Simulated assay, not measured.
Amino acid sequence: MVDDGEGARAEWVRELLVRDVEAGFVELVREYRGLIHALLRRAGRHDAEDLAGEVFVRAYGALLGYAPAKVRGLRLRAWLVTIAVNLCRNEARGRQRAPAVVGLEEVVEPRCQWDAFDDVVERLDLRAWLARLTALLPKHQRMAVVLRHGCGLSIGEVSAAMGCAESTARSYASRGLARLRELVAEQGVERGFGEAQAA
Rank of each mutant, 00 (worst) to 15 (best):
H46N: 10
V184L: 07
R148P: 02
E109S: 12
K139I: 07
V71H: 00
G188C: 03
V158E: 01
A135V: 00
K70I: 15
Q113R: 14
E15F: 04
A116S: 15
E157P: 00
V121M: 14
S171Q: 13
R89A: 15
V71S: 02
C88K: 08
Q113L: 13
K70N: 06
H140Q: 14
R191H: 10
V102A: 11
A198W: 04
E109N: 05
A161D: 07
D47L: 04
E182L: 07
A169T: 02
C151T: 08
G176F: 01
C151I: 05
P68Y: 03
V55P: 01
Q187E: 11
V29L: 05
G163D: 02
V102N: 08
A38K: 15
Y32R: 10
L104N: 02
G65D: 12
E166D: 14
H140G: 08
T82I: 01
E182A: 08
W129F: 15
A92W: 11
L183Y: 06
R33I: 09
V121E: 13
V57R: 15
R33D: 09
E31Y: 10
E190Q: 11
L133S: 05
T134W: 01
L17Q: 07
R170N: 11
G94D: 14
G5T: 07
K70D: 14
V184S: 02
Q187P: 03
D119L: 15
V18S: 03
A92Q: 15
A198P: 01
L51S: 09
G152S: 04
D119H: 13
V121N: 09
R14E: 01
L130H: 01
A128L: 13
E11W: 12
E106M: 04
T82C: 09
S154I: 06
Y32Q: 10
G24V: 03
A185T: 08
C151L: 03
I155A: 10
M162C: 02
G152L: 02
G152I: 01
L76W: 06
S167V: 12
M162V: 03
A128G: 11
R123K: 15
G150D: 05
L126W: 09
